[in-house]
């Protein structure tokens, strides 16, 4: 299973290295959004807009990543292959996470560059929260965009089905965001909001690949 995950991730990285399609996409989207938000939002909304930008661009990016998995017969290329679909889903989540982490770094640079002041401070809380936020998003969007590519006729239903899962996650993130710079490192890690977010991420990483494999059962 691990060799399969490794070979899928390596295949994706090789395609990315050759085409750089997703990287250009990330660069243009983050540049546009960060320029807009840093110009028109007040300074106390900047941190919130940073994560909203990540949210919006990740929705678009994950659909693009999933579309690359579709073959000429409008099916997932791996569907006809002896591939464990949960392992496939996990490898796509890891690949998305790599891209999203790159995107978060680029966005951080743009935000600080365009605002001409050091507006987002890097500390342990910021890194830990961003990591949990991105893990959650990559699981959500990778899993559901892959499902959408497969279950085209029921696409609208899947969009409705995603809301009960994503809304609590976004509420948790919003609460966790409020404490980010008010609590010390130890306090923040032990805070209820952060631990709930961590628990939610663990739940997602367990449930989503199984759900994906079940929904696409051959």
């Amino acid at each position: 299973m691990f060799s399969l995950i490794k070979s899928i991730i390596l295949k994706d990285l090789l395609i990315e290295y050759r085409e750089k399609g997703n990287l250009y996409y990330v660069f243009i989207l983050t540049c546009t959004f960060s320029l807009l938000f840093t110009n028109y939002l007040k300074e106390n909304h900047i941190l919130f807009s940073y994560y909203v930008t990540l949210l919006i661009t990740n929705i678009l990016l994950s659909q693009r990543i999933s579309r690359l998995e579709i073959g000429r017969n409008d099916e997932l290329i791996v569907f006809n292959l002896p591939v464990d679909l949960s392992a496939f889903c996990i490898s796509k989540i890891i690949y998305s996470l790599i891209l999203f982490l790159f995107q978060a770094s680029i966005l951080f640079i743009f935000y600080n560059l365009f605002s001409q002041t050091y507006i987002i401070e890097i500390n342990f809380n910021f890194i830990a929260f961003t990591l949990l936020f991105l893990i959650g998003l990559s699981i959500f969007f990778t899993c559901f965009s892959l499902l959408l590519e497969r279950i085209k006729g029921e696409g609208q239903f899947m969009f409705i089905a995603i809301f009960p899962l994503i809304i609590p996650f976004l509420f948790l993130c919003f609460n966790g965001l409020n404490d980010l710079y008010y609590l010390g490192t130890g306090e923040y890690i032990n805070s209820f909001n952060f631990q709930l977010l961590l628990a939610f991420d663990i739940l997602l990483i367990t449930v989503c690949p199984i759900l994906f494999s079940y929904a696409l059962r051959r």
Partner: peptide, 17 residues
């Protein structure tokens, strides 16, 4: 799926590889 291999009418590969 390793014992029974299906080869679709339209062959699908990763186009950029």
């Amino acid at each position: 799926l390793k014992e029974v291999v299906f080869l679709p009418s339209l062959p699908s590969f990763y186009e950029n590889l």
